[in-house]
Design a protein around this nucleic acid. Sequence first.
DNA 1: ATGGCATACGTTATAGCATTACGCAATCGA
DNA 2: TCGATTGCGTAATGCTATAACGTATGCCAT
Lengths: 140, 140
Amino acid sequence: MTAHPELTRNQALVLKALGQAEIPLSAYTILDLLRDDGFRAPLQVYRALDKLQELGLVHRLESISAFVACAHPHCHAHEIIAFAICRTCGRVNEFSDAGIEERLGRWIEAHKFEPEKTTIEMSGLCAACADPSNGASVGA
Amino acid sequence: MTAHPELTRNQALVLKALGQAEIPLSAYTILDLLRDDGFRAPLQVYRALDKLQELGLVHRLESISAFVACAHPHCHAHEIIAFAICRTCGRVNEFSDAGIEERLGRWIEAHKFEPEKTTIEMSGLCAACADPSNGASVGA
DNA sequence: ATGGCATACGTTATAGCATTACGCAATCGA
DNA sequence: TCGATTGCGTAATGCTATAACGTATGCCAT
């Protein structure tokens, strides 16, 4: 059920690479990871990423120009997703919040804005990196 | 009162360019605008932008890799600023919302995250571009 | 089956955004 | 006057993303 049978070979390879990564990957990093699978050019990666984003399986993190596999690929209930990105370990926490959606919705209505894509990203230190003494490991 | 006496010549030139623009400018666009003022290299622009961002006078729009002058340079009450960016006319609406800050604050507290920078950007169509018949002009 | 359309692919080249590294100059306080 | 800090100028480089070309494949209405 987690696999998307409609995916092409390239798309599946890119999604797999992102799924195995613990942190967001740049398009060029993905390209390097997939050289052994025959990838030769950035466009192969970008085209796959475009499709995967359309399908809601991948998100682009604008503030770091990198991509992550969606943490909740089965649930498309939330249009607006927020990310907390640790600048030290690189890990990303994906979440959504109805309250934020509601507040943005109010503004949108009041200003007759028609949003197509919404980006919410916080970067900073995750709990483990802010306070290493609490036992959470950064590596692995 | 709007001028910052501490600004260097380069910083003042960059801020002025952004202030006169109706839409966000890329660093390289700013560079081109300031060639007559002696600017020769991207770094001159980036250095000035860095300082202006530190001072809260300029914001970077991550989703379009461009920069805008702060719409409320006198008011630093809001740490979290949101932007609505029209993909057609390029105009940007800058706003803040205490409700959103409160919701994000809750998440941060619950997850012991220590945010350093928060990005909230909506792109889509502004009222004028979504419904040109309502009389608002796009050009000029 | 055949023509037309849509989608994906592969390759090369190029465009656009940002930083590294070096050295010099001005300022300011100890 | 020394040293530290900050800003400046230049050249080179690196990273991110797209344009433009042609090809292959699957689908399906005729």
